[in-house]
Structure formats: structure tokens, C-alpha cells
Design a protein around this nucleic acid. Sequence first.
DNA 1: CAAAAATATTGGTCGGACCTAAAAATTCTC
DNA 2: GAGAATTTTTAGGTCCGACCAATATTTTTG
Lengths: 210, 210
Amino acid sequence: MTQLRERKKQQTRQTISHVATGLFIEHGFERTTIADIAEAAGVSKMTVTNYFPRKEDLFFDAADMVVRWPARTVAEREIGESALAAIRRAYLAATERQDPLLGRFAPGFARLIADSPALRSRLREVYDQQEQALAAALTEAVGPGGGLLEPRLAAAQLAATLRVLMEEARHRTLADERDDDAFFSGLAALAGQAFTLLEPALGDYAVRSA
Amino acid sequence: MTQLRERKKQQTRQTISHVATGLFIEHGFERTTIADIAEAAGVSKMTVTNYFPRKEDLFFDAADMVVRWPARTVAEREIGESALAAIRRAYLAATERQDPLLGRFAPGFARLIADSPALRSRLREVYDQQEQALAAALTEAVGPGGGLLEPRLAAAQLAATLRVLMEEARHRTLADERDDDAFFSGLAALAGQAFTLLEPALGDYAVRSA
DNA sequence: CAAAAATATTGGTCGGACCTAAAAATTCTC
DNA sequence: GAGAATTTTTAGGTCCGACCAATATTTTTG
């Protein structure tokens, strides 16, 4: 089985990530060293670095998902649906299933981010990659016809709205909003208003043709 | 004279910044160490760090201006003028006077940014601070009446547009667009389109009352 | 000019990122 | 299943940016 090796790798990766998260929550991000993590996980420092090239990656392990979902949503939008409508629909669906992707971290996580410049910087990078991926998807969606700047402007506005919503979600989580149902329905209401603001500019942008 | 010391400080600051810029252009950002800069400027490493806490500050010495101008523009908008209109007017005025603030760096600078992850990260931070300052100005402008999220959404959209325009300016500079007149008039045309996109959503947001 | 205040320097520590060579573990091949 | 090939992990080290404490120097003020 060529999968035994793969399973072990995932296992050690998981162990390292888990141990690191525990240490971060316990002592803070900056005050936890890679050496600490390596020792606690029972591996060498270099192994930690091999799995997680930058220290911040130990924290934002699910960043890829956040980066990709808006672009994927646009790429898979239904016939007759605009990019904005697809993203709005996907966002509201995520609130229905109470997806942590929207920024509903554990309070401990939210606090770590708020307290660490390095983590906030990494988060900005994630948002940026999300926007770039979205711009690429929109460029693909509208074809070579439209102006070159339009997809980037549209991506920037969509991503900016998503980012504000995510920051608000983190902020509310920090402010100790405990009831998940209330949290997510509140978020859905905000998102409705936010996306409606974009409607006049983007309501019929990148509508998928039959 | 309490100003002689001040002048000397500005002098050494200027010297360090100038020397650093030369070394960056010559060898690249990451390949230039703070020790190199200190030695070339004839000061100690710690002196460099005192004037420029982070290495990236040696490069983005005028970041404050970029961070503040949109917020200041909104705060000083004319009676009957919306935030969007004020920013559009200020942007077009900047193209008239061919202000480097809009992203018209020397080609060497633009290349350094493109090649350095650390500089791009710092640039993201600048954009973020620009947006936060703008959000604060808008919150101030609309008073306690409006929803809490609206100013942040408006700031995010305005800042996103400015950022795309600035990236485009950097990109065109890199692509060796030499004629300043053509460059800035092209930028003005793009900006016109970009701001017009925001018109339906923000055209009457934060209009200054008499 | 002497005392006080602000600034610069020296000489360190620390930690994250990176590298190389070698050892260990796993998979592939016969 | 043994040995070869490949991949993963380790050990030990360098480099550099960020930071700190104590000292020295310069500037300002009385």
C-alpha cells in the first residue's frame, strides 16, 4: 500500500498542528517558539518547518479553503446567475450550515489573531490571495471581451465585502456572542444588506450564458 | 537652537534612507542587510533600527502620506459633496499634478516591490491602514445615525478601488510606460471608469450638509 | 562651564528561516 | 522477502532582523 506512508504523514502533520494550536492558545503565538512545538510534538525543528514553511501556517491550516471558495463559487455558478448572485447564495448557504469558514472561530483563536501582528499580516495575505483567485475566475468568466480592469475591480469589491463580513464575524465572536443560531442569522442579515449594496454595480456582471 | 539637533536628525535619517535605497536598487531588498546599510551610511546597526523600526520602513518612507490622503480628503470635502465625489476629485487632481503618490514610482522601485514578498506584505499593510483611516473618517462623517457596518463597507469599496488603480499604475510603470503625460492621462481615464462603477452605490453617501 | 536631557553606540540575546549532509523509514523491484 | 531506490526526518549549523541593557557622546539648559 502506497498509502501507509501518506497516512503517517497526515498523522504527524495533524499531531504537529494540534500540539501547536494548544501551545498557542496556552501561551500566545509570539511567545511560542518552533523549538517548543517540535519538542512537544516529539519531532525535530526541521520537521515542523518541512510541514509548515512559515510559523503562521501552523495556525491558518485551512487557509486554502478560505482562499478558494469565492473563485470556485463563481466558476460553478448556474446558468443565468451573476457572479454576485452566486457568491451571495453561497454565503447564505454557509450561514445555514453554520460554516466556521465565515470567521466563526473559537474565541481563543479570535483572541490570538487580535493579539498577534504576524497573524494579522498572514490574514491580509489570505484575503489578498482570495481576491486574486476571484479576479482570475472572473476574467475567465467574462472572456476576452471586457476591459482588463473590470474583473479586477469587481473582484476587489466582492472580496472587500467578504472581508468586512469576516472581520465583523471575528469581532462578534470576540465580543462573546455565544449562541450560534443568533450569530449566524445575524451574519446572514448583515450579508444581505452588504451584497445588496453591490447590486446596482455588479447585479448583471458575469452572468453565465446558456 | 533646539532646531540644530532636529536638523541633524533629519540629515542622518535622510542619509540612511538614501544609502539604503541605493543598496536596495543595486542588490535587491532581501540581499541587502541592515548591517550593510549601517556600514555604508557610517552609523551603527542600532541607529538604523532607531530611525526605521522595520527594515521595510527604509523603503516605504512616505507611507504615511498614502495612508492618510483619502481620509483627509473625506474629512475636508466640500459642502454638498459626497465622499466618493471628493475622492474622485482629489484623485483626478493628483493625476493633473502627476503625483507619485498614485503609484508612479521609479521603475527600479516597482521592480523591487514586485520581487520582494516582504515589501508586498508591507504594502498590504499600508492599504489596510489606508482603509481603516478612511473608515474612521466616514464614521465621523455620517455621525452616529447610520448602521455600524455601512462606513466600513463604503471604506472597503473606496479603498479597494484606489488599491486596484495603484496596482495598475505600478504594473504599467513596470511595463516601461515612459511618457509621464500619457501615463497620467491614461490613469485618469481608468479612474473615471472605476469611480463611476461606485456611483450607484455610493453617489449620495456621506454628503456633507451645510 | 557644568549639569541634565536626549541620542547613539557597543555588545550582546533570541528566534525564525534556511541549508546541507546523513540517517532512518518506506516503497518498489526482482 | 531481500536489496535498491525514494522519500522523510534528523542533526547541526549559518544568517539576519528584532530587540534589550548599559555605556558613551552630543546637545541643550541653567
